[in-house]
Design a protein around this nucleic acid. Structure first.
Lengths: 284, 284
DNA sequence: GAGTGGTCTAGACCACTGT
DNA sequence: CAGTGGTCTAGACCACTCC
């Protein structure tokens, strides 16, 4: 098997890969720790006897893998991953419970509080509503005509100091479902006390199941800028579908999260065995 | 605000970013479709009047964002994302149900069948057991001493044709929990009919809750090779913790998935409202 | 102002694809 | 064997940080 392998030998392996591997091993062995400076380009050139561009190739590779961060005038340093903010699925039940509370209760728990361990005063929260045609994708999901109207609600929060995004999501609901309560179509009613689940309640909809679909991809250049992401940090992409008692899709929400500072957490309760397996507790 | 912005003007913006943006816009506008060839380096040099290295810079950027794939001798092409394999949390309940079935039932449903829509004959499945010290991280999670023994089970499946990884996971269980049934410590008993939940049943443990923690990061060079990943594809990282009726952690499983071909799906059932919200069904 | 990374050029050679 | 991308060199200039 190894003999069939057309891999280049060590000698002809690209030098920038060799450099990057050596540096990565130093990081993994702890010789370079978080926050430490990497060798300068000059030092890399001497140590591995290569040109500037090859040294840069190695640095770029490590950067694109999220291992280091760089900046003009400063040496590249080993990246210190930020702490992760947890977004747990038990929030779904908590929001449903909240929606059944009387208004004065609901008011006390704001929407913005969903967002991170950051002081609310430093974030700017915006929401915008519009109405669009469903199109084929949303039409299929909601089981409505592609020409039917869909209410699109866009939410984002930004850090006032840095201007960077802190949260970003878009929600879709069929207009036919919510127009019975015109207040739901007006963005001036945001933030709505009790959130989406209470909004749906005002038109007689109780959400019974929530389905989260999670995947990931790299940000575009623009996305990297607006989130303030260093190179090499992926985005987590989450589509949340809310279903009512008849398993109708009543709301779809798309959200993106920076993977380096986000942990999505999902809890699955299992039903108790009605009958234990026949070799239950063999051990005693 | 804009006036304070020290961003370079269009003129002094790095040329490789400009090239990459222009090409990305062509892709987004549909002028370049999936599978289409990008301009050659030569053409880029002419069109944007730059050097080879700058043209390469643009190509590398688009590649690291997962938008294109490249190969020697072939022009770069717009990437066609592979179909996504769904991994749903309802499998947790299905596995629990299976574990309660008699052995002949359990045998019919193999472990390998968990893996993708691929013919089983073309994949090679391996498992390896060893016993390690818990260490502080696992010790904390299991509530055992850092010096206590933990059974580590490693599973992977590879595509026999390409040699690429198809699935990869590592599972941890405290030895103290499972040693009552010595068969559990022997990797020659893999694949175990009924899976981990049945294995735990033989030592008197019923899993009642499963907690999934999901995040993402870029693969290292080696990880990219063994999964056969093109550049610009992140890994989804999933840690699954199984809890018994007393909320003890009884098993921890770490798995990684290539984000471009994986969708993780989580279902959250909500409890019915005992009392409808007081402005229920305002609309009629 | 010295040191550092970021950008850029012009051109060479090699590895691979496809005709 | 022509065309293409991958690697590499040697060196220039600029932007930025830190002393």
């Amino acid at each position: 098997m190894a003999s069939m392998d057309p891999r280049p030998t060590a000698a002809q392996r690209p030098i920038h890969l060799k450099i990057a591997d050596d540096l990565r091993m130093e990081i993994e062995r702890g010789e370079l720790r978080e926050g430490d400076s990497l060798p300068t380009l000059e030092q890399i050139r001497e140590r591995w006897r290569c040109s500037t561009n090859s040294a840069r190739g190695a640095i770029n590779l490590l950067k694109s893998q999220g291992l280091i961060v760089t900046g003009r005038g400063k040496p590249a340093v080993v990246r210190t991953p930020p702490g992760k903010v947890v977004r747990s699925s038990d929030r779904h039940q908590a929001e449903k419970d909240l929606a059944a509370e009387p208004e004065e209760q609901r008011r006390t728990v704001g929407e913005a509080e969903t967002n991170l361990g950051m002081s609310i005063t430093h974030q700017r929260f915006t929401s915008a509503y519009d109405t669009i045609e469903a199109g084929t994708e949303l039409g299929d999901l909601f089981g409505i005509a592609p020409t039917a109207s869909v209410l699109r609600r866009h939410y984002e929060a930004t850090d006032e100091q840095t201007g960077h995004l802190l949260s970003f999501s878009t929600s879709y609901m069929p207009v036919a479902l919510v127009e019975a309560n015109p207040a739901l179509l007006d963005e001036r009613n945001e933030p709505w006390p009790g959130g989406t689940q209470h909004q749906l309640a005002t038109v007689g909809i109780e959400v019974m199941t929530i389905l989260d679909k999670v995947t990931g991809r790299m940000p575009t250049t623009v996305e990297g800028q607006i989130w303030g992401l260093p190179d090499g940090v992926p985005l987590l992409i989450c589509r949340r579908i809310s279903l009512d008692a008849e398993d109708r899709n009543v709301e779809i929400s798309d959200a993106t999260y920076p993977a380096d500072r986000t942990e999505l957490r999902f809890i699955t309760p299992l039903q108790q065995w009605t009958q234990k397996p026949d070799d239950w507790n063999l051990g005693r």
